[in-house]
Design a binder for these strands. Sequence first.
DNA 1: GTCTATAGGTAGATAGAC
DNA 2: GTCTATCTACCTATAGAC
Lengths: 209, 209
Amino acid sequence: MTKDLDTESRILEAAKRVFIRKGYAGARMQEIADEAGINKGLLHYYFRNKDNLFGAIFEEAFRELAPRTVEIFESDEPLFTKLEQFIDRYLDFLAERPYLPAFVIQEINNNPEGLLKKLAESGFQPNPMKLFIQIQMEIQKGNIRPVNPIHLVVNLISMCVFPFVGRPMLQQILQVGDAEYLEFMKMRKEVILDFVKNAILEEGGGSRE
Amino acid sequence: MTKDLDTESRILEAAKRVFIRKGYAGARMQEIADEAGINKGLLHYYFRNKDNLFGAIFEEAFRELAPRTVEIFESDEPLFTKLEQFIDRYLDFLAERPYLPAFVIQEINNNPEGLLKKLAESGFQPNPMKLFIQIQMEIQKGNIRPVNPIHLVVNLISMCVFPFVGRPMLQQILQVGDAEYLEFMKMRKEVILDFVKNAILEEGGGSRE
DNA sequence: GTCTATAGGTAGATAGAC
DNA sequence: GTCTATCTACCTATAGAC
């Protein structure tokens, strides 16, 4: 439990937990109040209504998640260093917030117009061009196989994020218990990096830088 | 619009659309009635309550989705034929029901106890062992690199499903419009198969059977 | 700032006419 | 089977005491 933070922070923490657990439509102001150890009235005192409270949570969640996701676009490192750092940091990040991506994706899917418009207005404009060009250069140099940069990035993100988003379904399909799944997740950094490297490295090919 | 089907089917079709669009908690019986072109009373006449109606939709959705997902476990084909067939059929299937996996995943995530229990009771018990053993055999024969079978299957499913589940987010990150994304999705069968093959084929290695 | 009480609206479910 | 009207419960939001 969050101890003696100020009330606003307690509300935000509680709201985050409830919204992530139930989604916007399934969350109840009463449940958030209970979880924060206060009463409903105070929720409306601090945040005028449910939309406002949700907006604060969603924006915070997105601000946490998005920079990590697009981090791979910004760095100046060589391609394989970049890939390795991205996988390493992103999986660490997700391991500490395993429910974050499913929450963000669910809410965007349920309300694409509203939420995506707000994100665009808030100036969220990632720029993947630098990475795409870097990949093209490596192809021209003969270091990696000819791969479509967009597909490479989508494959990478998919392999990192989906095991969190689709965890219950994957466990059901693969008939894997909780302990086994956690063990499985620990190995993924190495597995994904190997998988991607082997998929794109030119066989005879040049240097890895 | 669904034309002159019998009422029950019209309700099911409408409910499916609304539940998929809004999720269980966000869906309104009124909206389903409107979408079916009938009134609320009839919903309760055919399906006693919201839970019942949702149950019918979810079970149908899951029955559609799950066999496709685990289809890869059943076939008797050689490994690479199996992979190719799975990617081909699964992406065709998803292209016609792009919102299905996000819906199923969202509802399982929001209510894991209830829905997973029902699935287990309904006898959904996939058996991935045959595929896992087949992969091990190929490794022993030196045809493919030593890869953990679970990770291979998770990587494959992730690359197939996530572009549908996370589409709005991916488009936002990659700054890609609708037309461009559809174009991108058309290429994915080939891309995923190539990616996986290159990732796991032993370089010097043996036959591809 | 924090509480209790309650207003106002809406959603699911039922009753009953046709 | 299908409709309208209505009940009941719940949920968001507000009012007002402390």
